[in-house]
Design a protein around this nucleic acid. Structure first.
Lengths: 124, 124
DNA sequence: CATTTCACTATCCTTTAGGTAACTGCTATA
DNA sequence: TATAGCAGTTACCTAAAGGATAGTGAAATG
């Protein structure tokens, strides 16, 4: 009913928004993407680059990231077999999303803790 | 070390990104914001506008949204006392974030299911 | 021959998000 | 007086995410 932006639009926007959040949220997904982008290719290399990340969780996350086209798993035959993970071009389509999340988060921290410094939040 | 965008930058970006995701993710937060923006003000009114949302969860989410400055809770003395929830101006700073999540999600659905229609995902 | 590395998998456990159902004190309405 | 609405709270339960620990088979290294 509204000319540009009504309630139904908002509700219909929820599905793609949920999809995006499912793809990038969770404790490890963005960290893994960053690690692979930084040049880590092998399973144990990625694992060692991210403190506290266990192999069980890494294996699961890598599968999901691969299914979503954000990384590529390659097998190079030979002795021994070589398994590597690479960033995809498609992963860069996330850049604007990540940037806007980062920007808002930085501003929000100022908004909440800036003037009114009653509360402190764990910086960890 | 990179001129514009190195690994350290990426890691430092994680904290604000996590903050933003904490504020908006979860099953209900965006739906509640939409409902309040659409004009629902009273607790039960908001609850009725969102199917399957229970009072326990709504109470918890409203507190968090209020702490994050995204809605405002007002008490109007009188008989009976009137409690209302209002959208804040600050909530609109989320617009670009939400828009980029929506846009990426729409594109991703095409990317994954567009050409290669082997898999189908629940549309529910 | 023993140990280590690689890429994982298997089992079990804890934490957190969220759901179910009932109930509270208060006021309003029939 | 009985019932219903408002704005929640309480106690209990389930499912999913993630952590801890150990083990797998193959190959490489000492």
């Amino acid at each position: 009913m509204g000319k540009h932006h009504d309630h139904q639009d908002c509700l219909q926007a929820l599905r793609p928004i949920r999809d995006t959040l499912d793809v990038i949220s969770g404790t490890w997904k963005l960290q893994i993407i960053i690690s692979v982008n930084a040049g880590n290719r092998r399973f144990t290399e990625i694992q060692r680059s991210i403190p506290k990340l266990t192999p069980k969780v890494l294996a699961k996350e890598l599968k999901e990231l691969e299914q979503n086209g954000l990384i590529e798993r390659t097998i190079t035959e030979g002795y021994p077999i070589l398994i590597e993970y690479f960033p995809t071009d498609y992963a860069h389509t996330l850049d604007q999303v990540v940037e806007s999340l980062q920007y808002w988060g930085e501003n929000h921290r100022r908004h909440i803790f800036g003037k009114d410094s009653k509360k402190e939040k764990e910086t960890k």
